[in-house]
Design a protein around this nucleic acid. Structure first.
Lengths: 348, 348
DNA sequence: ATGAAAGCGCTAACAG
DNA sequence: CTGTTAGCGCTTTCAT
């Protein structure tokens, strides 16, 4: 590979001149510029980013930790980050934390060690003091996105789980539902707790509380939705609507209802959360709360780039609103609804 | 940040000794080792990867270009790469090519410039000579995965689109279907053409050819599936089965059938391709050909790491078999099937 | 077993 | 406007 030295020799100038031309700063004569540009083209010269980074202490790489790239939810988020970073000529170093504290720590350290210029972190666990110290020493901008609101972050982009769940529960209540089940995901996740808070508020508005609904917590898996639904049906408790912690859980609910001969939404309405890829494709198509993950990713990246460019820039926390997407799976509560599905469920 | 010099001073040894200890090679006395390790711990020293990379000409970073991270298909593939790379302490620099030649070129150059130790490329377009030259100069191992079989690659991991489509079409034929539609995706993609080849072979086995089926090409979008289905229905051509170019197209087909009062699979069977996230959740659940993208990603990463470790290692091309996943959307052809849906379709 | 020294490729004062 | 100089932090001969 040609180095800056080769270029300078070929162009008959000094390395500094070449450097200036590449960086586009400083005064350079047209003569020199042309000679250098010609030499660069002839030699196929490309600056060595390692050397440049070592010298300038900047890598033009930003690091991202998400829970799991393989999941469409985070993949979309990463897609959002990427579109912004690409426009700014930054690359993305990607790591997954798999919602486990030690993997998250490993991921953060990996990115720090690769001298990222800044970090976007979607974490599900609190960060240990040890990691915090390393991160603090690195002294690079960090934006937290969703998940655990880590104190590491210079700025936060949150998805409004609270208001999303609030709106969702309100919607069910508005549709006349009073006998409601909520299947919460993993309780240790910050997002889960936020959603529960929103649900509390909505219930309180209707003069109700968690005690008035059927609440079960598990994890964000289709299987949990399936089994929780079976338990609900078996319990004999009659609900007219189920609010699923997310669309995966919702898919499981739908499957269980079908297997037990309960028609959705005629007998039980179902509300999801996330607006995942499959939500539109379920039958009935899932009414759900959209989390605009791509927007969140974009926003986080933009914030980070701004902070990298101007380290005095201290943005406000940004909350991306969740949005109710009305499809087919929630219908108004009707008078005759409460009893007949119990009969059918028993039969099935 | 503490440097190797700080550590050496604190431990009362030379920088070389510290370096040896970190690298774990060379002879070092226990005394020195202990002193250095203590100093490293006290100082919270972390090696600077830029400096190390500059010197050693290795970054421990591997670059990946996929069509689009935001799509679950590629996200899963990246997930596979990541799981392998993480185990080997390599990081992944990720770029998307968006199936456009110039974006793919940009992505490749970006990764080369960031001094990746190797590249995994999922491309949809041929690579220009210009880019080829740069890549050749970089002289790093490259494995191509799926998509366009670029000549850049030192090794290839392919998904067996040919046999997947072959098996799929065979399956439809075995189920007694003879009046079949195939909705192909983007014809310019290598994968698409491979699938068509497989279909040709299957048809030939049954003494048929493309002329005997209803073939339409478009793109890998739900919308195309929807519209192609409408056109098919409107044409009056009677088919007992539709083979969709992928599951997204398949979702569109299903939607159009439903809107036009055609029951699937009773009146028309539907076969997908990919086994995307939503395939299981469609109603009827989609019988489809699974592309094991995560395995492909893992395999590609493993191959690449092996080639990085031993540059004389020249692996065979690996083809990951596709697999028929039987669900509900394909049923055997029945005698009465061919006419009634035409009637209903007209009515709708 | 350890240290000295050279240099990876680049940037940024500084002096001219 | 341009060249000289001095490193960035690390690895790696080469002596000792």
């Amino acid at each position: 590979m040609a180095t800056i030295r080769d270029v300078s020799r070929r162009a008959g100038v000094s390395r500094s001149t070449v450097s200036r031309i590449i960086a586009g700063n400083g005064y350079v004569s047209d003569n020199a510029r042309q000679a250098v540009e010609a030499a660069i083209a002839e030699l196929g010269y490309r600056p060595n980013t390692m050397a440049r980074g070592l010298r300038s202490n900047r890598s033009e790489i930003i690091g991202a930790v998400v829970v799991n790239v393989a999941s469409p939810f985070y993949a979309q988020m990463v897609g959002g980050m990427q579109s912004v970073c690409r426009a700014a000529d930054k690359s993305i170093l990607l790591a997954s934390g798999y919602a486990q504290a030690h993997e998250e720590a490993r991921a953060i350290l990996e990115l720090i060690d690769r001298s990222c210029d800044g970090l976007i972190l979607y974490l599900e666990n609190a960060v240990s003091d040890e990691v915090k110290e390393v991160v603090a020493k690195a002294d690079i901008p960090i934006v937290a996105i969703g998940g655990e609101p880590t104190s590491l972050a210079w700025a936060r982009v949150g998805i409004d789980n609270y208001n999303g769940a609030l709106d969702g529960m309100r919607y069910l209540l508005t549709m006349g539902h009073r006998d409601i089940a909520y299947f919460a995901g993993t309780l240790t996740y910050f997002d889960t707790r936020e959603r529960l808070r929103g649900i509390d508020t909505a219930l309180a508005e209707a003069g109700m509380s968690r005690a008035d609904i059927h609440l079960e917590a598990g994890d964000y898996k289709e299987r949990f939705g399936y089994e929780a639904t079976e338990r609900l049906l078996a319990s004999g408790r009659q609900v007219s609507a189920i609010f699923a912690g997310d669309d995966d859980i919702g898919a499981g609910v739908l499957l269980a209802l079908r297997h037990h001969g309960v028609r959705a939404p005629e007998q039980i309405s179902l509300l999801g959360f996330d607006d995942n890829f499959h939500a539109r494709h379920l039958t009935p198509s899932l009414t759900t709360i959209r989390q605009p993950t791509d927007i969140a990713g974009q926003t986080a990246a933009r914030l980070l780039l701004d902070m990298i460019a101007d380290r005095n820039f201290t943005p406000e926390d940004i909350v991306i609103p969740a949005e109710l997407i009305v499809r087919e799976s929630v219908i108004p509560h009707s008078a005759g609804q409460r009893t007949d599905h119990a009969a059918e469920a028993t039969r099935a």
